[in-house]
Computed example of a mutant assay.
Amino acid sequence: MHGPASPGWLLVALCAATGAYCLLRMRSSVEEQRRAAGGEALMGFGMAAMAVPAAVFTPPSWAWPAYAVVFGAAALRALWAARASAHHLHHLVGASAMVYMAVVMATSPGHHGGAGIPALTGALLLYFTGYVLLSGLRLVPVAAGGGAVGWGDRPEVARACRLSMGIGMLGMLLTL
């Protein structure tokens, strides 16, 4: 994505840290938690890679189509998983947004962005703005339940990671 270098590096760090935490969540004893964490780790690391400031590193021409293929496969997986859980619809929207951004970057002259479809970019911005606001509300503390929960299974930390990725997605879409 193309914007100022400092915010770009902050976005890279945020998304990479979120991806790393999601990898750790894949060790959870809860099967649904492991499945969701894998998709979220892919999204976090993919967003980190796409957010590296262009002034520092310009990806080779094959990178953008590769991103589109990887996230297209993730979108298909999310579509399949959405049969069992509506949460995967968000993964579908997120992976589809990544495909969209990769296609825009692949087809823009000099890979400097700005060639997106304004209505689609606007719709994605509205969706992720709503998602971020709702995710923030879900972080409001609730009374602790019984029993100790491993730090990798703490729902509030998983919600904070999803919030971080939603904010990251907004940042990436704004630079498109």
Rank of each mutant, 00 (worst) to 15 (best):
M1I: 11
M1N: 10
H2M: 12
V12I: 09
C15P: 00
Y21W: 11
C22V: 00
L23N: 02
R25M: 12
M26P: 02
R27V: 13
S28T: 09
S29G: 12
V30C: 03
Q33K: 13
A37N: 06
M43D: 02
F45M: 00
M47P: 01
M47H: 00
F57C: 10
T58L: 14
Y67D: 01
V70A: 14
A75L: 06
A78Y: 07
A78M: 06
R83M: 03
S85C: 09
H88W: 15
V93N: 01
S96V: 04
A97C: 14
A97M: 07
Y100M: 00
M101R: 00
A106L: 01
S108H: 04
G110M: 07
H112P: 00
H112Y: 09
G114H: 06
I117D: 11
A119C: 09
G122C: 05
G122P: 02
Y127H: 08
L137S: 11
L137A: 13
W151T: 10
G152R: 14
D153Q: 07
R154M: 12
P155Q: 01
A158Q: 06
C161D: 06
R162D: 10
L163C: 10
M165W: 00
I167S: 05
G168A: 15
L173R: 03
T175F: 09
T175L: 15
